[in-house]
Design a protein around this nucleic acid. Structure first.
Lengths: 220, 220
DNA sequence: AACTAAAGTGAGTAATCACTCATTTTTTAT
DNA sequence: ATAAAAAATGAGTGATTACTCACTTTAGTT
């Protein structure tokens, strides 16, 4: 059904390659098994002993690589958190906007298609992230401080940019961002979490969704 | 901060008054403690022993009233699930629509204000419901079969009604419902879950949100 | 007051939990 | 080939888990 996670690509090394460059085969199996279990049963209903069993590895091996169970969770979830919203964190955003996107609509289409690919590829981990964020302070503060605020700042700039061009109606940028994000987030949520088995026409739905946003906020 | 749950009102009796009419004082304290803990730490990270401690009750008392821990969860969550979407399940919907709401906009304003009150009152339990639905088959199937489908049918009728009046642009009703629900759900999510501490101007936000929906889907 | 049913108790149960560590196996460097 | 380092093991740890049960207390009825 869903595509397999590409463990190698996502977990290569956290920041630079200061940390070890590769993963042990068994370490990979541990991550795969943990991702499976966490997304199926939730973090705290998943026992390390069953993760070990699924990975066909001794339980001790898990704790050789990850000091605690929570560290294992963070190792899984942190890289997607960083990459999920990465496209929003760009230098010289203003130049990029002027060059690449002549309308808010173009910008939205590009960003959604791009993020949809990513989500599709890492849907299990995205699920875990969404599920566990409310219960782990480290996760929440990491998300809000490091990612959320930065992304929000960029989005503010983008919306202001197109408002100044007279393309979007004047309303608090905060509200504009919320409405845009809700519409797109609502689509992705319905598409991948609520009714993933439904027979979706992605192209068509995306078109409707973005037209809806544009009409809803169009300056007239 | 948040308002207290009104245990008495919500848990009076499941269906008719066939079941016992009231709750023991200790039973009430158990429910209050469990709601608190489940919403703070999640269902499976909450132990029955700590629930008992918070309720100042012997652990055995919990199991006198609820055979299992999961039965306790269902006792908490089922009544809000029923009441949350109850206003959508109305007989003679068409008459109600024609009499009470002359536009889709009026309908939306009424329904959102009504549901916002309910969510505000029972926000902890709504959180629990959202958190636990993915992990409990009984919950999910109950929600989809008994509530979801019925509500969806009504919404379909409502959207068709206003499309026929020429008020809404022609698009698949499914898509129209999704877009409407995303916009409103996005507001409620931001308002009560993502940034509950933010200084919200509810009236203003609601106005923007509904204008956004109306413009986005207006027939022109 | 006497009887009954329901409510409440808390010590006890087996199972499971995350995690440790002494030891063995495998990989790497020389 | 040999030594050193890293990876892997699995039996064992005390703590905690959901749940039971024989028993006591409370509430309601006559």
């Amino acid at each position: 059904m869903g595509k397999q996670e590409d463990i190698n690509e996502l977990f290569k090394s956290s920041e630079s390659d200061v940390y070890g460059e590769g993963l042990t085969p068994k370490q990979k199996r541990i991550l795969e098994a943990a991702i499976q279990m966490f997304s199926e049963k939730g973090y705290s209903s998943s026992s390390t002993s069953e993760i070990a069993k699924r990975a066909e590895v001794a339980e001790g091996t898990i704790f050789r690589h990850y000091k605690t169970k929570k560290e294992l969770l963070l190792a899984i979830v942190t890289p997607v958190m960083s990459n999920l919203l990465a496209p929003f964190i760009i230098r010289d955003l203003d130049k990029v906007l002027k060059k690449n996107y002549k309308s808010y609509e173009d910008f939205l289409i590009a960003i959604v298609k791009n993020r949809q690919e990513f989500i599709e590829k890492h849907i299990s981990i995205v699920k875990i992230l969404i599920q566990e964020i409310p219960f782990h302070d480290e996760l929440r503060s990491q998300f809000i401080d490091r990612i959320g605020k930065e992304v929000y700042t960029r989005l503010e700039a983008i919306v202001s940019h197109f408002q100044a061009k007279g393309e979007l109606v004047e309303m608090p940028t905060q509200t504009a961002i919320r409405l845009t994000a809700s519409s797109i987030g609502g689509f992705l949520f319905a598409r991948y979490i609520l009714l993933p088995e439904h027979d979706w026409n992605d192209e068509e739905e995306l078109k409707h969704t973005i037209h809806f946003i544009m009409n809803g906020m169009k300056a007239r």
